[in-house]
Write a protein that binds this DNA or RNA. Sequence first.
RNA 1: GCGGUCGUAGCUCAAUUGGAUAGAGCAACAGGCUACGAACUUGUAGGUUGGGGGUUCGAGUCCCUCCGACCGCACCA
Length: 561
Amino acid sequence: MEPVATEQGILPDDALRTFAQALRESAAALYDDARLEVAFEAPRRPEFGEFATNAAFSLARVARASPQDVAQRLTSDLAERAPRVAALFASIEPVGGFVNLRLAPQIWQAAIACVVRDGENFARASHRGERVSLEFGSANPTGPLLVVQGRALSIGDTLARTMRLRGYDVFVEWIVNDAGGQLETLGRSLDARYRQLIDPAHPFPEDGYPGAYLVEIARHLRDDGADEDVDAMTPEQRIDFMARFAADAIVAEQRRCADRFGVEYDLWQSERELHERGRIQAGVERLTELGLTYEADGAIFFRATQFGDDKDRVLVRADGRPTYFCTDVAYHYEKLRRADRVIDVLGPDHHGYIGRLAGLAAALGYPGRLEVLIAQQVTLVRGGEHVAMSKRAGHIVTLDEILDEVGLDATRFFFAMLATDSPLTFDLKLAVDESNDNPVYYVQYGHARICSVLRKADASDVEQARYAELRSLDHPAELALARRLCELPHLAQSVVDQLAPHRLARYARDVATDFHQFYTECRILAEEPELRRARLALCLAAQRVLSVVLGLLGVTAPESM
RNA sequence: GCGGUCGUAGCUCAAUUGGAUAGAGCAACAGGCUACGAACUUGUAGGUUGGGGGUUCGAGUCCCUCCGACCGCACCA
């Protein structure tokens, strides 16, 4: 068993792979050709080492021995059989059935040299040809973006950025729900606001959208000189015109807000356009080809009960109008055909929809290809008091207002910090009052502090640090920081695999903590040249990692603050 | 009533998907600048993971059952 060495030396992953192989060989030799699965995990407690494997537990049953004994025998056999592998580790300790590992400092030194060399490309994976369709945001075009959409935007965009880093082809889309009954309601609402400009007593529809933004839009419409056009229309034409005008204006606002939030979409898909192009029909036709539809009472039904739903669902009504579910069928059919992995980030009122969409994917022949992520509810409080957020009552808090109050960096970081399926209470007053203690500033401060050190250092020193000998890095704080920085590739991949963007925010904080600690315990500029350059290299690596992670979160990495 | 999500320190949240003595931040208390940014850092205190059963070497995590919060349950979107 010979370790693989790169230009920089042996890297942590190589060392672990080599160790796993050696451990399997020991298991086979000791326990009658037993096959051993070796996986590594990061122990929760630092005294348990940098990596641990629980391989001995699974072997214990076969071996008819206690996990403790198995771990003990495996490690002592490995030390004899593969001394060169053992030499890659500062310690290999069997404890309570686990095998706890600590890598030799030179492994971490090689890893840091790699991070410095890779720079902004650290943790970037090569293109793998897997296509991902990601939909998030997708608010109805009946009002401005609200707080909960901000959460979806944070989660979705961070996922998209991380997937791109990891070599996936990501296609980000927003579906504009501009068809169906709600548009008619929107049209009547705007029409009423428009008429109220002349006659303030004109009644507002009881089911209308009460927000003040429609008054604004009505004014724009009037300022555009629409009076004559509008007056010449039939009532139906007039409502339809109002609906389109309002929806276009609102969608434009939503796009501006998403842009302000730092999110770029590849496609804003109008549902009305899908209808007009006859693309809605394709989904129904596909299901019919598969024998999964039937007619009853003049309507076309989808056999949803065959896929776990509690009742069959109507696709096309007796009068020929498709249902909302029907457009979902068509839209998801398109996405499922053009992507290997389809992800929807939906709002908290769509829980009941998860099963139905999963069933739909299975029916269309793509079981398990569609994943639904629920961005859980956001409850706003201000100084401990509930902020009412009923659309009906017109008490809305828009995403723009949050951004005005808290700022983009803090908002994005805060929303990304929480697990997606965890409900969140957001205290606006707290976010403002404690802005100095906000985690995002802590991380940004870490980045600015590093930049400050690099500015104060000799330019030639910094240059030489890029190729420096890092043998002198062995202080516990240095090694802890190095370990942390090396987690990024694995962590970014776990974000993609498990759709867990919040780990990036926590990781950013951990990196900042480890840097601050290193900075507190180790002097940099006043040291002898070799150590000074080695520590500058560590600074460079930490700065790159922070900048990459903040970039994934859509948060700026300031050089000073 | 049926189904879904959730319940973890006083507060806001983690826990790498079944691993070891459940961790961070805020708030509280006690320390650290004549050093490259103190927006930093060291320590103390804080827990029957809503309750109760079960599965196994091992459960915050999986299963059952209560309790509680929120959300769905349309030929609305």
